[in-house]
């Protein structure tokens, strides 16, 4: 009813929290890496080394899983909007990779609780990311046995890059006050 419509002034001034700003900054950083990475060649379209993982793991250690999940989701969506791949097969790949790596990070946090450093989390996230992407690529797009032969290679790459970004994060965190 127009007569009883409340003032919607509160809706106009979007109150943003410190966390929102943090998420926005981190996501922007992750998206930049994501975009740079998309220019790299890959044996399977959409399968990338995942250097944006650095931002995810750093966020996880500094601000917790929830914030990391937001950063990852924004990266995937905004990144694909910028690349023009939103809702395309490429998007489905990076989306499934993101979901798998977030799930792995969440599970690891619940199960291990302590003793695991950035390198361990980064390895888990990278492998889950690759496995998730591969599963979707295989089941949804090209269920050909020949594709399976690529999988060990892709997972090796995931371990390598996971290790690399893990070490970068660990070094970075040490230098933080």
């Amino acid at each position: 009813m127009p007569a009883t419509r409340p003032s919607h002034a509160a809706g106009h001034t979007l109150t943003t929290t410190v966390e929102d700003h943090r998420i926005a900054w981190l996501a922007a950083l992750a998206i930049t890496i994501h975009l740079a990475e998309s220019a790299l060649p890959s044996p399977l379209p959409g399968v990338k080394p995942g250097l944006a993982n650095i931002v995810t793991i750093a966020t996880l250690f500094l601000y917790g899983w929830r914030t990391a999940a937001w950063v990852v989701s924004l990266r995937v969506i905004v990144g694909s909007l910028l690349l023009g791949t939103f809702l395309s097969p490429t998007f489905a790949l990076s989306f499934s990779g993101a979901v798998a790596s977030l799930a792995a990070l969440g599970l690891a946090g619940l199960v291990v609780r302590s003793g695991l450093g950035p390198v361990g989390y980064s390895l888990l996230a990278a492998m889950a990311h690759m496995a998730g992407q591969f599963a979707v690529a295989y089941w949804l797009f090209i269920p050909h046995p020949a594709l399976l032969r690529l999988f060990p290679l892709l997972m090796s790459a995931a371990v390598l890059f996971g290790l690399l970004s893990g070490i970068i994060v660990a070094t970075m965190l040490r230098r933080l006050p």
Binding site: S73, I77, L87, P89, F91, A92, F95, V136, L140
Partner: peptide, 11 residues
């Protein structure tokens, strides 16, 4: 979040 669910359904 809703947007996130969409592609899952589509794909």
């Amino acid at each position: 979040l809703l947007l996130l669910l969409l592609p899952g359904l589509i794909s």
